[in-house]
Simulated scan of single mutants.
Amino acid sequence: MPAAGIPARSAVPSTTDPLTPIWHPSPNFGPRRDGLKPSLIVLHYTAMSSAVEAVERLCDPEVEVSAHYLIGANGTLWQMVKEQERAWHAGAGEWHSKDDINSRSIGIELDNRGDHPFSARQMTVLETLLKEIMVRWSMQPSSVIGHSDMAPGRKSDPGPRFDWQRLERQGLASRRGHGEGPQDAPNDIFRALARDAGFSANVDDDTLLTAVRLRFRPWGKGPLEPADFTPLGHTAPWT
C-alpha cells in the first residue's frame, strides 16, 4: 500500500511528452546560497527497501535530508523540492574545485539498494527527466555526475550497477575516452587527469582510484593500471 498522500502510479510516461511528477513536498530545503543556480545534476541511489520508505525519509524533518526528485523502480516519479530551491542531498564534497554542491545542483534519487541493476522503466524516466532539466537550466552532458564523483570515499552511489554508458550514448553524461593508456605511469599523472575530469576532492590515491572506477570501470580491481587512464580521455601527458 502506498504511504498516505502518495498516489499509486504504474504507467511510465512517454519519452517525448513532458513528465508530470507526483508532488510530495519535503520541508528539508532552503534558498540556494550566493545567488547560485543549478549547474549540476547529482545522481544517487536510495539504499532503502522501497521507494515509499525513501519518500518518507526524504520528507522527514528530523532526518534533514531531501532531494528534488525520486524515481521508483516501476517508473513512478516524485518531486519533493522545487528546482529553484536548495535540497539537502549532496553533503560535503566538491567537483571541479567547487564546494557547496547542494547550492549548485539538482539531486535525483533512484529507488535501488545499490546491489542490483536499475530497471528499464526507471532508466527511461531518468533519461526523460535529465533531458528536461538540462534544457531548463542550459546544462551540458558534463553536468551529470554521481554522488561518488563529488564525495569519493564517503559515498558510493549510484554504485557499480548503474549504467553510465547508456547515458553517455544519449548525450546525458560525459563520454569516456578510448584508446590505450600509458604503461607504468605514476599516480601523479592519473591524479592530474582525474582532476581535469572533475575529481578534485583531496583524497588519497586509493580512494581517488576507487571513485574513478565506480564511474567508468567498476569491474576494475587491484592497483592502478593502464585501463584506468583510458576513460579520462587525455593522451598528451604520455605521448
Score class of each variant (00 low, 15 high):
Glu180Leu: 12
Leu167Lys: 06
Ile133Cys: 01
Gly159Glu: 01
Arg136Cys: 02
Gly153Thr: 12
Gln122Pro: 04
His178Pro: 00
Ser143Leu: 00
Leu130Arg: 03
Ala185Leu: 08
Ile145Tyr: 03
Arg166Leu: 12
Gly159His: 01
Asp204Gln: 09
Pro158Cys: 08
Val144Gly: 08
Arg166Met: 06
Ala197Met: 09
Pro152Gln: 10
Asp184Pro: 00
Gly159Arg: 05
Asn202His: 13
Asp188Ile: 09
Gly181Glu: 02
Asp204Tyr: 05
Gly171Pro: 08
His178Val: 13
Gln183Lys: 09
Ala197Pro: 01
Gly171Tyr: 07
Ala192Val: 00
Ala173Arg: 15
Asp157Asn: 10
Ile145His: 00
Ala151Leu: 02
Lys155Gln: 13
Ile145Val: 15
Lys155Pro: 01
Ser148Gly: 09
Asp204Gly: 12
Val135Ala: 13
Asn187Ile: 07
Ser174Tyr: 03
Phe162Gln: 03
Ile189His: 04
Gly146Trp: 00
Val125Asn: 10
Ala201Arg: 12
Gly171Leu: 07
Leu130Phe: 03
Ser156His: 09
Leu129Arg: 13
Gln122Trp: 03
Thr124Arg: 14
Glu132Arg: 14
Gly177Trp: 11
Ser142Ala: 15
Thr124Gln: 15
Gly153Met: 10
Arg161Val: 07
Pro158Leu: 03
Arg154Asp: 12
Arg191Ala: 14
Val144Phe: 07
Ala197Trp: 13
Asn187Tyr: 11
His178Ser: 14
Met134Cys: 13
Ser148Glu: 12
Arg166Trp: 00
Gly171Lys: 07
Val203Arg: 03
Ser156Thr: 14
Asp157Glu: 15
Asn202Arg: 15
Gln183Phe: 03
Gly153Leu: 09
Gly181Asp: 04
Ser174Asp: 06
Val203Gly: 07
Asn202Phe: 08
Asp204Ile: 04
Ser148Lys: 04
Met139Gln: 14
Pro182Lys: 06
Ala151Arg: 13
Pro141Leu: 12
Gln170Ile: 00
Gln122Leu: 04
Arg175Ile: 07
Arg166Gln: 13
Gly181Leu: 02
Ile189Thr: 15
Gln122Gly: 04
Gly159Phe: 02
Gly146Asp: 08
Gln122Met: 12
Ser138Tyr: 00
Glu180Thr: 11
Ala185Thr: 03
Ala194Glu: 02
Gln170Ala: 12
Asp188Arg: 14
Gly198Arg: 08
Leu193Gln: 14
Ile145Ala: 03
Asp163Gly: 02
Ala192Asn: 06
Pro160Arg: 12
Ser200His: 04
Thr124Ile: 05
Gly146Gln: 07
Val203Leu: 04
Gly198Phe: 05
Gln183Ile: 11
Arg154Ile: 15
Asp149Ala: 15
Pro158Arg: 02
Ser138Arg: 13
Ser142Asp: 15
Val135Phe: 01
Phe190Ile: 03
Gln183Ser: 10
Ala201Asn: 11
Pro158Lys: 01
Met139Cys: 01
Arg195Gln: 06
Thr128Leu: 07
Gly171His: 05
Ser142Lys: 12
Leu193Ala: 10
Val125Trp: 06
Pro160Lys: 11
Pro141Gly: 11
Ala192Leu: 10
Ser156Pro: 00
Gln122His: 04
Ser138Ile: 04
Asp196Thr: 09
Glu168Asp: 00
Val135Gln: 14
Ser156Trp: 11
Thr124Met: 10
Ser148Thr: 10
Gly181Cys: 01
Lys155Val: 10
Thr128Glu: 04
His147Asn: 13
Arg175His: 10
Pro141Met: 13
Pro186Ile: 05
Val125His: 05
